[in-house]
Design a binder for these strands. Structure first.
Length: 417
RNA sequence: GGAGAUGUGUCCGAGCUGGCUGAAGGAGCACGAUUGGAAAUCGUGUAUAUGUGCACAAACGCAUAUCCUGGGUUCGAAUCCCAGCAUCUCCGCCA
């Protein structure tokens, strides 16, 4: 959520924002404004009536204490009560609709974000390493893994359906090694605190980070319990401090957590269907930061660098892409994607996404901080993958492959095997 | 899953035979007085949200709401009723 006062006073700016984000029709800003105005007059009205009722009730109490029985006055106040009740009912409806619309308004974009329609308009900001050269035709990871007997897609389908897979032997061990390596790097060298929490969370948590209410179709929800499987540990980590006021001295807070991530991938049918690239369950090491507002863009650069460091140590060629206005997610004000080179697929593949949400999530989730002697204010949240483990496994298989159909283990992972 | 108990401010803790209680008392914290300095002592202050006033913002004023959450009864609810949630105890179950 962005500050409702900003919307109130800058209708045109918000409309422009929707244009740039390629979601012009997605939110009815005029309706939002109209509802906001109506609810404010009703709040005023209701408050005035309550004031009247409070003072009248007080008088009634005093009169009764003196032994009188002010029947007329009580009748009168009862009518006020009825009026309040009907205003409250209308107000409830309005507030609900207002919140619905308000939650749908995307975040303000940072000035540095290029205007563009989709991923074709994203801007490559840097590259690291170079594409490996092979004196044979490099194969995709799923062919290598399947023929080695370490990736089993058929049995994944048998167990759970399309886009599920099974790791056997080396693949399972290697992914575990990847996760441990990444966690060690982020905790021992980058200053993150290793955290572990629920993979299943309630609706408030899913709303706090922006998954609900708009994108309900993309996640697995257990309706009888009102709980959802997390699509990323960002949900668990960012909601840790929901409805809390943190002391300023505790900031910044850096957290990392490994989790399985569950996504329906609705609407992605037919895209990247093969292999480990797009699946319903994958493992990921997540990075989340809670910071003071003035520092959040510096923190974004550092966060992205932390994720890049994983690829550098694995010696995998990658590039960093600044997402354009149309490709940046609604909660984010600025996002860098890190894309690793996949020789077998012959393209770059997103392996991390690092975003600065400003106070957008903090406002939804009511995460604030307080300096001594000052009022509480919303802090800024950031997150990034550090990295997606399954895709890292796929990248290693493709980049480290040998002509004989097997692959090497990156040097830094050997001690984890 | 079954039975019972509990749920008040930063914390402890009164109130719960309905009105004068945003909430006694204590602790903590902040500031001030006292002191050569400190302890002790004394004084003052110590929530959040929303709306509104001041051209805006800050500060401030006013109003409303908040005693786990949501409903209800009542002229009026922290106090009564209902539902939910959480914690604790006992039983059941279990990696």
């Amino acid at each position: 959520m962005i500050d409702p006062k900003i919307i109130r006073d800058n209708i045109e700016m918000i409309k422009e924002l929707l244009q740039r984000r390629n979601m012009a029709g997605a939110v009815d800003i005029d309706e939002l404004k109209a509802i906001d105005e109506e609810r404010r007059t009703l709040i005023l009205k209701a408050d005035e009536l309550r004031e009247k009722r409070n003072s009248a009730s007080k008088t009634i109490g005093q009169l009764k204490a003196k032994g009188q029985d002010p029947v007329d006055m009580m009748k009168e106040v009862q009518l006020i009560g009825d009026e309040i009740k009907s205003i409250e009912q209308r107000l409830n409806d309005l507030n609900e609709r207002f919140r619905e619309l308000h939650l749908s308004v995307p975040n303000i974009l940072d000035k540095s974000v290029p205007t563009g329609k989709d991923d074709k308009d994203n801007v490559v900001v840097r590259e690291w390493g170079k594409k490996p050269q092979f004196n044979f035709e490099p194969k995709p990871h799923y062919d290598i893994g399947t023929s080695m007997g370490i990736l089993d897609f058929e049995r994944g389908v048998k167990l759970a359906g399309a886009r599920f897979y099974v790791y056997r032997g080396l693949a399972a061990t290697l992914e575990r090694a990847i996760i441990n390596f990444m966690l060690d790097l982020h905790t021992k060298e980058h200053g993150y605190t290793e955290t572990f929490g629920p993979f299943i969370v309630n609706d408030e948590s899913m709303t706090g980070t922006g998954q609900y209410p708009k994108f309900k179709d993309e996640y697995y929800r257990i309706d009888r319990d009102g709980l959802s499987l997390i699509p990323t540990a960002e949900v668990t980590l960012t909601n840790l401090f929901r409805d809390e006021i943190l002391e300023a001295e505790k900031l910044p807070i850096y957290l990392t957590m490994q989790s399985s991530c569950f996504r329906r991938e609705a609407g992605a049918a037919g895209r990247d269907t093969r292999g480990l690239v797009r699946v319903h369950q994958f493992q990921k090491v997540e990075l989340v930061k809670f910071v003071e507002p003035e520092t959040s863009f510096d923190e974004l650069e550092k966060l992205t660098a932390n994720a890049e460091e994983v690829l550098k140590r694995l010696n995998l060629h990658y590039r960093v892409v600044l997402l354009c206005s149309g490709d940046t997610s609604a909660s984010s004000s600025k996002t860098y994607d890190i894309e690793v080179w996949m020789p077998g697929l012959n393209r770059y593949m997103e392996i991390s996404s690092c975003s600065n949400f400003l106070d957008y999530q903090a406002r939804r989730a009511m995460i604030r901080y307080k300096k001594k002697g000052e009022k509480p204010q919303y802090l800024h949240t950031l997150n990034g993958s550090g990295l997606a483990a399954g895709r890292t496994l796929a990248a290693i298989i493709e980049n480290y492959q040998r002509e004989d159909g097997t692959f090497d283990i990156p040097e830094v992972l050997k001690k984890y095997m």
